[in-house]
Design a protein around this nucleic acid. Structure first.
Length: 226
DNA sequence: GCGACAG
DNA sequence: ATCTTGTCGC
């Protein structure tokens, strides 16, 4: 028996998919965030075996200066299963976001939003749990076909537009942007692009990634000492 | 049965 | 995600 995930060995993939389908109907695709965005946050996670290290970075929307950052570690409760990423990453993500003193106007999440086989990827799930506007920014595609519609490269599935294929850096792989929660696809793409600096990845997520990696190294160094 | 498959 | 060296390019 695998002791690592014994606590959730009754977990059913099909039930989780039904949960995602149910949650997807709660996603709000309208802009319910400030017209003038002041702060944007990025969320990411790193792992040391099954120790999950979540990180959040809040940046000034215009200057991209880091205003606040936190990490949170916890034991991963789920293994990584394609389509069920949110169940693995929500605990560490929520834990570090709760440490924020000042909440951001919108959250950029490393993963899919509505561009998911059951319409509720990590970004959407996190948005619903936190009740906050979220945008999904994935480094690779999970589902859908990219189609050029009215000059826009979009991600389509079953005649539905589920996201946008965004080339943030010329000559480099695009990123897949989709609605997380409380935002429209157009605004989501606009914000994601606005947050890009030198990397292909929007700055808030890039910073969160670095913070998680830094915390991971810190934990590893500490373990060597003990 | 086969291929695809976020992080 | 993680494992990993050098190497090409701005």
């Amino acid at each position: 028996m695998q002791p690592t995930f014994v606590a959730v060995k009754k977990f059913s993939v099909s039930k989780a998919h039904k949960t995602q389908l149910r949650l997807s109907r709660k996603i709000i695709t309208e802009d319910r965030l400030p017209h003038e965005i002041k702060r944007v946050a990025g969320v990411d996670a790193a792992y040391i075996d099954e120790l999950a290290i979540g990180a959040v970075a809040v940046l000034d929307y215009e200057t991209h200066e880091i205003l606040e950052q936190h990490t949170a570690t916890c034991q991963a409760k789920f293994p990584y299963i394609p389509t069920l990423l949110s169940f693995r990453e929500i605990p560490p993500a929520v834990a570090c976001i709760k440490k924020l003193r000042r909440q951001p106007d919108v959250l950029l999440v490393d993963g899919q939003g509505a561009a998911h086989p059951y319409g509720c990827g990590f970004a959407s799930h996190l948005g619903l749990v936190m009740g906050k506007p979220t945008v999904g920014v994935a480094k690779s595609k999970l589902v859908g076909d990219s189609k050029l519609i009215a000059g826009q490269e979009l991600l389509v599935q079953n005649d539905q537009i589920i996201g946008a294929v965004v080339t943030t850096k010329e000559g480099v792989k695009p990123v897949y942007v989709s609605v997380g929660h409380l935002i429209s696809l157009g605004t989501a793409v606009k914000i994601a692009k606005h947050c890009v600096r030198n990397s292909r990845i929007p700055e808030p997520i890039l910073q969160a990634h670095k913070i998680a990696a830094e915390e991971k190294r810190k934990v590893e160094r500490k373990r060597k000492t003990l």
